[in-house]
Amino acid sequence: MKGMFNLVGRAALGVVLLFCIRANAQTASKPKDKLLYSEDFSGELDKTRWHAEIEPVGQSEVRTDKGRLILNTAGGVTVWFKPRLEGNIRIEYDWTVLVDSGRNDRLSDLNQFWMATDPRNADVFGRNGKFENYDSLSLYYVGFGGNTNSTTRFRKYYGNGTKPLLKEYLDSAHLLKANHTYHIVITVIDGRTTFSVDGEVLFDFIDPAPLRNGWFGFRSTGARHAVNGFRVWGEQL
């Protein structure tokens, strides 16, 4: 009987060791984050890394100020990050909608494009900031607090003018607060993209025809916004 217990104990120990070996192997082979890009906006806006498209209406500007990217526009604006992104990535940044006494202050439109491509051109640059001019792109889009802070929406653009609404929030908990700094995290991993705000996943989409590469852009209209802490992470095997 004692010998039988020894055999059972050895067998159990073997199972535990085998599980540990497999777990360690899986941990060792799991990709680790690698910082691909970072931006502190400490000097003038780097034209080699950023491309601003501003709708020619009213008094508008895109500039840096004390380590922040400032979007202060009367009409539409897109600020593209010029390096093309691909593969499994995580994009994160802090974003504040500034509301005080500025001429363009309005609590609205903390928006972003990602994995954007133009089916008819080599890149996405060259539009004038007007929102409708981006309908011909293929991309993912979140309009956080759009329509004068009445909707938060997630869409996929198909590059032909089709841009179905995939999910929408209308409740105040998922709309903007003035002068609050939001931490935004976007992931694109193996055909799945997520959009998180302050640790809460607002949108989680498994795409049957995923967008695997393209450009990222900050997007707004008729408001004054500040962005800082921009980082892009990728995989390092």
Score class of each variant (00 low, 15 high):
residue 143 G to E: 04
residue 142 V to Q: 14
residue 230 F to K: 11
residue 155 R to I: 05
residue 68 R to P: 00
residue 66 K to V: 04
residue 151 T to R: 15
residue 184 I to E: 06
residue 11 A to T: 15
residue 123 D to N: 14
residue 133 N to P: 05
residue 122 A to T: 09
residue 166 L to K: 10
residue 153 R to P: 00
residue 207 D to A: 07
residue 48 T to S: 11
residue 93 Y to W: 15
residue 25 A to C: 07
residue 59 Q to F: 04
residue 19 F to V: 10
residue 172 S to Y: 09
residue 79 V to Q: 01
residue 176 L to M: 08
residue 213 N to P: 01
residue 121 N to M: 09
residue 149 N to G: 09
residue 23 A to V: 13
residue 67 G to K: 05
residue 153 R to L: 05
residue 90 R to Q: 14
residue 194 T to L: 10
residue 221 T to P: 00
residue 53 E to Y: 01
residue 101 S to Y: 10
residue 83 P to M: 03
residue 116 A to G: 02
residue 1 M to I: 03
residue 20 C to T: 11
residue 75 G to D: 11
residue 116 A to K: 02
residue 16 V to Y: 10
residue 25 A to R: 10
residue 147 N to C: 10
residue 153 R to A: 05
residue 46 D to L: 04
residue 185 V to T: 15
residue 187 T to W: 13
residue 215 W to N: 00
residue 218 F to L: 03
residue 233 W to R: 09
residue 50 W to I: 02
residue 29 S to I: 10
residue 198 D to W: 06
residue 19 F to I: 09
residue 91 I to H: 06
residue 80 W to M: 01
residue 128 N to R: 11
residue 135 D to P: 00
residue 100 D to F: 12
residue 197 V to K: 06
residue 81 F to P: 02
residue 115 M to S: 05
residue 146 G to A: 12
residue 165 L to W: 07
residue 9 G to D: 13
residue 162 T to R: 14
residue 104 N to E: 08
residue 111 N to R: 01
residue 118 D to T: 02
residue 105 D to Y: 09
residue 181 T to W: 01
residue 163 K to I: 04
residue 156 K to C: 09
residue 175 L to I: 08
residue 170 L to K: 14
residue 108 S to P: 03
residue 179 N to Q: 07
residue 71 L to S: 05
residue 10 R to Y: 13
residue 192 R to F: 03
residue 54 I to M: 01
residue 199 G to D: 12
residue 147 N to D: 13
residue 173 A to P: 03
residue 53 E to C: 02
residue 168 E to D: 12
residue 44 E to D: 08
residue 55 E to M: 07
residue 148 T to N: 11
residue 68 R to T: 03
residue 78 T to W: 00
residue 143 G to V: 03
residue 60 S to H: 02
residue 92 E to I: 03
residue 202 L to F: 12
residue 80 W to E: 00
residue 18 L to S: 15
residue 122 A to P: 00
residue 218 F to K: 00
residue 134 Y to W: 05
